[in-house]
Design a protein around this nucleic acid. Structure first.
Lengths: 139, 139
DNA sequence: TACTTTAATCAGAGAATCTGACTAGAACAA
DNA sequence: TTGTTCTAGTCAGATTCTCTGATTAAAGTA
């Protein structure tokens, strides 16, 4: 079985479950919106940075931020350091989703550790972190 | 760093590279088309099965198969076992893409093994295969 | 100051996806 | 055998996500 598919299957499972948990808690965001929202820094993040981190064009990021803004999950404030730029910031409303997502993630990790055993789970994480060094375009 | 993102990053790398290699070899397919094409069995596969395997609706799978058919990568033949159904089969033309994809996959795996070492690469594969047991909805 | 680059947006289009409704054939129960 | 129900696939229509290209305004630079 090819390594791409092996990575894809559990990844899809995590995405589906976390999104379902967040939606079930009353936060109506889509997967694409969540991918952007997830990358907004507590201090606020520029659109260009969000676009890079989420691997989409600025236009796409802008489109998704528009929707998140309309739904009240983020706000745009002027960037004091640069008159052209604006900082995207998460609102109080969106902060409520963070613990929901984290709890589901913790639940998934616990299930996986139960299935794999503590040792193999540690090896998995270690290997993935090392892979990030050569496959993550953002560092 | 959350486990979903850790899985996502190398997965995206594999998908991008394999698709780029296939495209560079002259096979003009999109990522979505490739995900369906990849799941067509040598004997032929029903649309409904493809849809399930690729995790999309029948309509979406049909739409993608239409495109693949127009481009000459698959054909639809009647299913002798069921008058309602048709079997989607890959054509000669599409078969040429298989070794291209496999070569790129082998290249990626070799690079990863060089970075992780043989032992850790083996552990990664083992852990992912075990995860498939609990996260793959198709078995 | 004039030129170049950068951050963001506007306009328009294409790709992928969905929900709902429908047709034809298969399976099954009476 | 005949009617009912289920299944495979398609049609129609809409939404969501994504892109390319052009534009505006502010920053940086020679």
């Amino acid at each position: 079985m090819n390594i791409g598919l092996l990575l894809f299957i559990p990844n899809r499972d995590v995405e589906n479950r976390v999104l379902a948990a967040v939606n079930a808690a009353g936060f109506e965001v889509t997967q694409a919106q969540a991918r952007v929202l997830m990358r907004v820094d507590p201090e606020g993040t520029r659109l260009t940075v969000l676009a890079e981190a989420a691997q989409v064009t600025k236009q796409t990021a802008g489109f998704l931020v528009d929707q998140l803004e309309k739904a009240g999950y983020v706000e745009r404030v002027p960037d004091p350091a640069d008159g052209r730029a604006r900082l995207v910031r998460v609102t109080e409303k969106a902060l409520g989703a963070v613990p929901v997502a984290n709890e589901e993630l913790a639940r998934i990790e616990a299930e996986w550790e139960r299935h794999l055993g503590k040792r193999r789970m540690g090896q998995l994480r270690e290997a993935l972190e090392m892979l990030g060094e050569i496959t993550d375009p953002y560092r």
